[in-house]
């Protein structure tokens, strides 16, 4: 949660790896020259000298401040430039900024995490935290949806997450698709009934 004395000053970081997630989304792995300790829900500004800066929430674990993963949809000037970068490139990171999720309030609660599309990226940092403290939590239900199967993020991790004790994960796509045998429907609709017994709600909004 600490900031540099000058919060506008970028911390130099090297792009260590790039992972293709979907046709338009990549995960970028950064190694900053100093640790960037963050709470899930906090964000950083990625600074590309001469192009600009844009805010992103890390998709990696808050337990690993020396290695930040950020999952980014190609959609504007900064993200177009990011998608052109090769491993080894240097850029700047400012932050962490924002207040983050009030994760201490999750203690002893059932947890429902609902995300859609590239929105699972910032939630993954929260999931890593939730998995880490799952002994202190109730049931953990993760509902994820995307428009089509090829836009689902982090597909190779679903089995791993589902295998964790107390964790249930399910993915849906918005409309039927030839390559999709799972559930269809918009995730906010399919998430309306999750548990038959009422769960104690835990708001995940920052306050």
């Amino acid at each position: 949660m600490t900031l540099r004395a000058n919060p506008y000053e970028p911390i130099a970081a090297r792009l260590a790896d790039v992972v293709d997630e979907t046709p338009t989304i990549r995960t970028f792995v950064f190694t900053p020259e100093e640790p960037i300790p963050f709470v899930s829900g906090q964000f950083v500004q990625l600074c590309l000298p001469g192009i600009g800066e844009a805010p992103f929430t890390p998709s990696s674990s808050p337990l690993e401040p020396n290695r930040l993963e950020i999952t980014i949809l190609r959609t504007g000037a900064v993200t177009e430039a990011l998608h052109r970068l090769e491993p080894g490139a240097e850029l700047g990171i400012r932050g962490p900024l924002g207040k983050g999720y009030p994760v201490e309030k999750l203690q002893g609660k059932d947890i429902l995490v609902v995300g859609g599309g590239v929105g699972l990226a910032p939630l993954r940092a929260l999931l890593y935290h939730v998995f880490h403290v799952r002994d202190q939590l109730g049931r953990i239900e993760i509902k994820y949806g995307s428009r089509s199967p090829d836009e689902l993020l982090f597909r190779r991790q679903y089995d791993q997450w589902s295998a964790l004790p107390g964790v249930r994960f399910s993915a849906t796509v918005d409309v039927p698709h030839p390559q999709w045998t799972g559930r269809t429907g918009v995730v906010t609709v399919t998430s309306r009934t999750v548990w038959s017994s009422p769960a104690a709600p835990a708001s995940c909004s920052s306050s």
Partner: peptide, 11 residues
């Protein structure tokens, strides 16, 4: 000017 790539840390 509030920062430089990769400038001094002087305030």
């Amino acid at each position: 000017r509030v920062a430089a790539f990769w400038g001094s840390r002087d305030l």
